[in-house]
Amino acid sequence: MSAPDDAYDDEALAAEYVLHLLDADARRAFEDRLRDDRALQDMVYRWEGELAPLSEEIAPAAPPPALKSKVMEAVGPSRERSPLQSIWSLVLGGAVAAGLLGFLMFGDVLRGPADLTPEFEARLSAGDGSVILVAQVIPATHEIVVERVAGGPPPGRVHELWLIAEGATAPVSLGVLQDEGATRIRVPDDIAPGVRTGTVAISDEPPGGSPTGAPTGSVIATATFVDI
């Protein structure tokens, strides 16, 4: 079969996937391929984007008011507590797992000279591309190096880096970034193990960083890490 035919087969398959026309087995097989196939992911996103306008014709319908409280309850308690408390709950909640994971991930620190190669990275890009940062993690030293590729904070403001560990209810500040070039940040040992599976974010803050311990300005970009 020639290459263009393959491409068309995948295009049709991607459309069938987006439309939920594949039977359970075919759907699972497609999802297995999708996980590591960027070209296939792009086809899926393209179909999703192109077909979504069809839903314009669907009239909005107000859900029953009680549903909102159910949804809000399900996402956990409100964050009206001091930043210190939220950090503590994060630390204590993750302490056991952190200890174990920390040993697994960073145990080689104990065994020999530190390996200073970054092992995973996240690309933080503002929706319009005006700000682009690349964060690389060096597990051996618990460091994140954030390289500013494009853009900076508006005059009189700074960019602050946050980590939302998997399952955490609140972000933890990792520090304020330099306006240009690279910023090297040492992640506290107790939260370091949560970096790989967590989400990082950049927010716009007053000089010196957020005064409240939680992001106060707009969120410029969020990203998760991938292995390098």
Binding site: A62, R79, W162, I164, P215, V219, I220, T222
Partner: peptide, 26 residues
């Protein structure tokens, strides 16, 4: 959505208010 990624419940509530009728329709 960006703030919801940061576990901001107030932003989540606002997102719900702005979009739930459309999504319920769907």
């Amino acid at each position: 959505i960006a703030r919801v990624a940061l576990r901001d419940r107030a932003a989540f509530a606002a997102l719900y208010d702005a979009t739930s009728a459309k999504l319920f329709g769907v």
